[in-house]
Write a protein that binds this DNA or RNA. Structure first.
Lengths: 337, 337
DNA sequence: TTGTATGCGTTATCAC
DNA sequence: GTGATAACGCATACAA
């Protein structure tokens, strides 16, 4: 494996000069430049990123810590970020937290040990790792949160405008006459501080239709819990006329539960969901969804991260609007109780 | 940031001893061990992985190069690998190739520069980067291919038994009376050397029902191409009675095309697909699929990779069987032409 | 059982 | 424009 010293020797220059041929070629005399470039080709020189990382205190990667890479939202975001990073010589160090701060801490330790240049992360619940993250930030790692952000969190963030999105969804349902609406999961400051559930509660109350207490339960946003909770809801004497799934995974569980209960989507019960997943336009009727601008998120994130790795910090605290896509899974609220 | 030297100084021992407290604690006297552990806690010592990487010539990550992280197969595999890596102090450096060897080379350069300890990769087409990969291997990087493997490729591999899987699928279709079956994509040694398409052709011929030349076209395995090709197939005078989608993304395109053509799944045209994606059991009838044992793959991969990073090389050239799941999207071949 | 010394390849500072 | 030199933090060979 050729090092920059080998290149320098072969070209008859110093390592400093040899490196400049790669980083600041304009500062070299054409003649010198050519000699070095020839030597680089001759030896197949490729820089050792680990040596550079040790010297500079950060490596050439961006850490991306998602909740779960299998959730399509995170998979798509990972791709967008990865693709855009390509033109910058940065790589992507992937980690997850399964929404749990112990797992998160384990992975943060690794990312910090690897000296990632920047960290894009979906925070887990609770203030658990804030101290650790602040230490990372102090050591020069740029940190930006995605998808979720606590008001007292000191970090930059870029996420969906959950409030606007929930409101857009509810206005859609209201316009169809729905008032008995159940959200798939209830906000809990300690256990489950999810914004979509929080705004759902708040906006419903504000609109004069507080969510029935029978509809309120703290569940996790996965297929299984969503399935079971939906079955429960559909069996209530006062069953909801519309269901609001707070992410794409929940929507799958809800959809299956509705089918298994022998009910028809739209006619018997309406379904509205976050995340525009492929299957939502393949069933019939198609599912009404609120789509996140994932491409835009990826673009803005990479831009912001690269700008902030070197150069001075430019704050970014951004909410992006969700887009309602209507396909037919929400029907008129029927008169039947 | 505390280094191991700081720890050593505070504990009044040498750096070597301090490190041993972490790596080989049994080799220290209880008293020494305690002193060092105290100092580690006192200083919040965490190892600098970049320094270790430089020194050892490889970092504490495994490179995972997929074709496209958005394809659920790769997303799920990434999660399985990531989860299992957690108990080993290794991280995951993620990259893709979009099936193109230029993109692949770019990312390989990065992975090699980062000195990944091992590389799990889905190869792109063509022999393009073999030379580069061999150089990586010579420098000590353990390499194993997934999902696809050329017979003359010198690397280990772990993938689905494509031949067995295709045969299982076809026997299912034959048992329902189908003979006019179209695979969504045709094998081409140069342009598109995909095994599933290859075995499809071969097994159909072997069985006495060579694929009609009207059904043969080289397409890429994405939703759009699959959609268009399916529309074309369904418009043929001798249209196929069954379609075989070679991955989950193709299946989506085919499904939509069938719907848009106003045909009924199973009654009018049967659909069989690779990959057991969530939506395939949510539509009705559910889609008959061939499922890959992704969890097992992740487990075996991590096991093999960790064993081969240190220790002597133990070869692994493994085909795992696919599992046919029947849900109803394949009906009897109708008599109508 | 513990300690000493060296070098991994790069980058940054400073001198020429 | 170019070059010499030092230091990043760790792992290893070797010495004690």
């Amino acid at each position: 494996m050729a090092t920059i010293n080998d290149v320098a020797k072969l070209a008859g220059v110093s390592p400093t000069t040899a490196k400049r041929a790669l980083n600041e070629p304009h500062k070299l005399q054409p003649h010198t430049l050519e000699k070095v470039q020839w030597a680089i080709r001759e030896l197949d020189y490729e820089p050792d990123l680990t040596a550079g990382a040790l010297r500079r205190g950060r490596n050439m990667t961006v850490g991306l810590l998602v909740a779960d890479i299998v959730e399509p939202f995170f998979a798509e975001l990972a791709r967008e970020v990865s693709v855009r990073l390509r033109s910058s010589n940065y790589g992507l160090l992937l980690a997850d937290n399964e929404y749990q701060s112990e797992i998160e801490l384990h992975n943060l330790r690794h990312l910090a040990g690897q000296r990632v240049s920047a960290l894009i992360m979906r925070p887990s619940y609770g203030p658990g790792n804030r101290e650790y993250l602040l230490k990372m930030q102090d050591k020069g790692t740029y940190i930006i949160e995605i998808d979720h952000h606590m008001p007292d969190s000191p970090f930059d963030f870029l996420m969906l405008d959950h409030e606007q999105s929930v409101r857009a969804g509810l206005e859609h349902l209201w316009s169809l006459g729905h008032t008995r609406i159940a959200g798939l999961g209830t906000y809990d400051a300690e256990l489950y501080p999810e914004w979509r559930a929080h705004h759902f509660d708040h906006i419903m109350r504000e609109h004069g239709h507080p969510v029935l207490s029978a509809y309120r339960e703290i569940i996790r946003y996965n297929e299984q819990d969503a399935y079971e909770f939906t079955r429960y809801l559909l069996n209530l004497p006062e069953r909801p006329t519309a269901l609001f799934a707070f992410n794409g995974t929940e929507a799958i569980g809800a959809y299956r539960a509705i089918q298994d209960a022998g009910l028809r989507i739209a006619e018997d019960v309406s379904l509205l969901a976050f995340d525009n997943l492929p299957w939502t336009h393949m069933v019939s009727p198609g599912i009404d969804v609120i789509e996140q601008p994932i491409k835009q998120m990826g673009e803005l994130l990479v831009q912001q991260v690269l700008k902030n790795i070197d150069g001075p910090r430019t704050p970014m605290q951004l909410l992006l609007p969700g887009k309602l896509i209507v396909r037919g899974s929400c029907g008129m609220a029927s008169a039947e109780s």
